[in-house]
Amino acid sequence: MTDPFALDFAALRCLRMVHDLGSFSRAAESLGIGQPSVSYTIGRLREAFGDPLFVRQGGGIFATERCVEIVETAGRMVDEFEALAAPRLFDPGSAELTVGISCNFYERVTILPELTRMLRREAPGIRLNIIPSQVRGREQLKRGESDMLIGPIRIEEAGYYRRTLFTDDYVCIMDPANKLSSAPLSLEEYVAAPQIVVNYGGTFRSQFLVELERLGLVPNTSMEVPSPANLPDILTGTDLIATVPRRTAAVFGGSVAVTECPVRAEISIDLQWTRRTHVSAAHVWLRGRIAGAAGRILVQED
């Protein structure tokens, strides 16, 4: 039998990763180790806790009640230990580290360019690993796949921290030849116009859609896409319109016509992180630079 007191934080982190991902192989890939190492570690944990921890059912594995209990407690312990181990001193000019940031198209075209310029001047040894968050930002933070989340989806639970960077509203974009581009859109015209709706997945819905539902209205959706990235190409030569945040439309420049959206709604872009990196000097510094990049964007717009 494995003595529970012989276990280390690496084993507990492995357990949490298998639990969160529901897969030995995916956990191994995320941790950067071989699957046999994951299997061996889970075997030691099974002996130590006297429980199978995971059982196979169909084509997947499912955590036992005991496993869920252990993961909930051990996860907090691992996060708190990582926070304790984080260096309290930080020199940006000589720092060498990699930081994972979860975000989507909007954040990549607004905040990331300014942040990159700042980092190249002040901390060229910091490497950013940008991963698409879509609607999985919370899970990515929890599993340690990313260190920070930037976006509109707020995490309303203990153990997560948040700083609002800025807000935005919505505009309508379309082919410059679209007849609707010549005058402001009425609410009736807007609802009737064939639209491309950006569907980010999961249960997340853009605020303009929430407001439309509150008004008892349904957009005339002709197409759904997972990202606004190539909307100008899709809109060209069609009578379609799309609703996007104002700063997204600005990135598209003259490739699209922009009109005010008759649905008044606001989007909040937040920076979020966990207790794992909350007191890390490097992460505190970087979060400050991200907020600074957002602040410079606001100044430039004024």
Results as ranks from 00 to 15, higher is better:
2 T>A: 05
2 T>D: 03
3 D>K: 07
7 L>V: 09
8 D>G: 12
13 R>W: 04
15 L>G: 02
16 R>N: 12
17 M>I: 11
18 V>F: 02
19 H>W: 08
21 L>Q: 11
23 S>H: 07
23 S>C: 11
24 F>Q: 01
24 F>E: 03
25 S>L: 14
27 A>L: 11
27 A>M: 09
28 A>L: 10
33 I>N: 05
35 Q>W: 00
36 P>N: 06
43 G>V: 09
47 E>D: 14
50 G>T: 09
50 G>P: 11
51 D>S: 14
55 V>L: 10
55 V>T: 10
58 G>K: 07
60 G>L: 11
65 E>N: 05
68 V>P: 00
70 I>W: 00
75 G>M: 07
76 R>F: 04
77 M>R: 04
78 V>T: 11
78 V>R: 01
84 L>G: 06
84 L>E: 14
84 L>K: 10
88 R>C: 05
88 R>W: 02
91 D>V: 13
91 D>M: 08
92 P>S: 01
92 P>E: 05
94 S>D: 12
94 S>A: 13
97 L>P: 06
97 L>A: 10
99 V>Y: 04
102 S>C: 15
105 F>K: 01
109 V>W: 01
112 L>S: 06
115 L>T: 06
121 R>E: 15
127 R>A: 08
127 R>W: 01
130 I>G: 02
130 I>S: 01
130 I>L: 15
132 P>Q: 03
133 S>V: 12
133 S>I: 07
142 K>E: 15
142 K>D: 09
143 R>H: 03
143 R>T: 15
146 S>T: 15
151 G>P: 10
152 P>N: 07
160 Y>S: 03
161 Y>P: 01
164 T>M: 13
168 D>T: 15
168 D>S: 15
168 D>M: 12
169 D>W: 11
169 D>Q: 12
169 D>K: 12
172 C>R: 02
173 I>L: 12
174 M>F: 05
177 A>F: 00
178 N>A: 07
179 K>I: 11
179 K>H: 07
182 S>Q: 15
184 P>V: 15
187 L>M: 14
187 L>G: 04
188 E>H: 11
189 E>T: 09
190 Y>G: 04
194 P>R: 08
198 V>C: 05
199 N>C: 05
200 Y>N: 03
201 G>W: 04
202 G>Q: 10
204 F>T: 09
204 F>Q: 05
208 F>C: 10
210 V>C: 12
214 R>E: 14
214 R>W: 05
217 L>H: 02
225 V>L: 09
226 P>G: 05
227 S>N: 04
228 P>A: 05
229 A>M: 07
230 N>M: 04
230 N>D: 06
230 N>K: 05
230 N>G: 00
232 P>Y: 02
232 P>L: 03
236 T>Y: 04
237 G>P: 13
238 T>F: 00
242 A>F: 08
243 T>K: 02
244 V>D: 01
244 V>H: 00
245 P>E: 08
246 R>S: 09
252 F>N: 03
252 F>I: 10
253 G>N: 11
253 G>M: 12
256 V>K: 01
261 C>N: 15
263 V>F: 00
265 A>L: 13
267 I>Q: 06
269 I>S: 04
271 L>T: 11
271 L>Y: 07
272 Q>S: 14
274 T>F: 00
275 R>C: 14
276 R>W: 13
276 R>S: 10
278 H>N: 14
280 S>D: 15
281 A>R: 04
281 A>N: 06
285 W>M: 04
287 R>E: 04
289 R>V: 11
290 I>R: 02
291 A>D: 08
294 A>D: 03
297 I>W: 02
298 L>N: 06
